[in-house]
């Protein structure tokens, strides 16, 4: 799966908005932004600067960037703006208002230091995009949320029952010398024990907030968190057991073949009489074998991308 420049831009904007960065200028092709301290810390790799700011209490100066998502169109537009500017300047020495806004009327010189706005072209493979995802994962991996109540006024004194859900986005890696991955976003209700395999569908259409709404009570849990985790894992492993493991069988075959070849090669060598040499050869033999196991042995690994506790208006309507 790859992403269009528009999708990349959406992801970028979502991150910038969530981290409260200040957008200076925006077009379908680019965004010029002054980072928030939060984003600056995650993206600019300046631990010493931030250490200095925190220790001295100096006012923090965050960096600004000009992220360009569609360089071709953007450059085209810039060139046109330049042309238009040249024309208008013939008539009257008016600067392009767009540029004048942050360069003032001074001649355009390259600005160094904090005021400098660095341009960066962003595409799907950019390390900046990967950085944003990683930062998001770091800062969003554990959430605790409540469903926002409908705006219609409820009768006074009647508290709404909320159901607590544990939602986990699992990443499953099937690896040998090759690898495949799959995501499973599961959820389990701590009161009804219902498990859903599509937790985002349950969340869909609900507005979530980190603050506890008024006159709400959470239904007592029938499961401890540990039990819920065990139930989710159990469910997932059951699901995994129904998958095709042909790849693993093949990897094991490859491993056996490779080990046979190695065994064949060392068989003669291990007849070496000299003890010292023999020890060396044995060590080499052991190493080669363990390398093969390392390389080919199939396994499945389970980890989580994000998790959280979600308090939702019941009935949540878990279907499965």
């Amino acid at each position: 799966m790859t992403m269009t420049p528009q999708e990349v831009q959406q992801h970028f904007m979502a991150y910038l908005e969530a981290t409260e960065c200040t957008v200076i200028e925006k077009s379908p092709e680019h965004v010029t932004v002054k980072l928030s301290p939060q984003a600056d810390k995650m993206l600019t790799n300046r631990p010493y600067y931030w250490g200095f700011v925190e220790r001295t209490g100096a006012p923090a100066e965050t960096l600004s960037f000009n992220f360009v998502f569609d360089p071709e169109k953007y450059d085209e537009r810039l060139a046109k703006a330049e042309e238009a500017k040249a024309k208008t300047q013939l008539n009257a020495p008016v600067q392009d208002p767009l540029l004048a806004r942050y360069y003032g009327n001074a001649p355009v010189l390259p600005i160094l230091g904090p005021g400098r706005i660095q341009r960066e072209n962003i595409g799907y493979g950019s390390s900046r995009l990967a950085q944003i995802w990683n930062a998001s994962r770091e800062e969003g991996k554990c959430v605790y949320l409540f469903q926002q109540r409908d705006s219609e006024p409820r009768p006074r004194g009647r508290s709404t029952p909320y159901e607590q859900w544990l939602g986990v986005c699992f990443k499953v890696e099937f690896s040998c010398d090759l690898k495949r991955e799959e995501l499973f976003f599961l959820g389990i209700s701590l009161s009804s024990r219902a498990i859903t395999e599509d937790f985002p569908a349950i969340l869909h259409g609900r507005e979530l907030t980190p603050r506890l709404p008024e006159s709400v009570h959470v239904r007592p849990a029938a499961l401890t968190l540990e039990q819920a985790v065990a139930a989710l894992e159990n469910h997932l492993i059951n699901k995994l057991s129904k998958l095709d493991y042909d790849w693993a069988a093949k990897a094991k075959e490859r491993l056996e073949d490779e080990l046979m070849v190695i065994d064949g090669y060392y068989e003669d060598l291990l007849k070496e009489q000299d003890e010292e040499k023999k020890a060396q050869i044995e060590e080499q033999y052991k190493n080669r074998r363990s390398e093969m196991q390392w390389q080919y042995e199939p396994k499945v690994s389970l980890s989580a991308i994000t998790c959280g506790l979600f308090h939702l208006c019941s009935p949540a309507g878990a279907s499965s």
Binding site: M1, T2, M3, H11, A14, Y15, E17, A18, T19, Y124, L129, A130, I132, W133, A135, S136, R137, E139, G140, K141, C142, V143, Y144, L145, C169, K171, K179, R180, E181, E182, L183, F185, L208, P210, I305, T306, G308
Partner: peptide, 19 residues
Amino acid sequence: WGDYRLAQLAVEGEKSRLV
């Protein structure tokens, strides 16, 4: 607690990078 928007973004990003 983490930001829900970032959590969603993390999942989206992971999806697009999934092998």
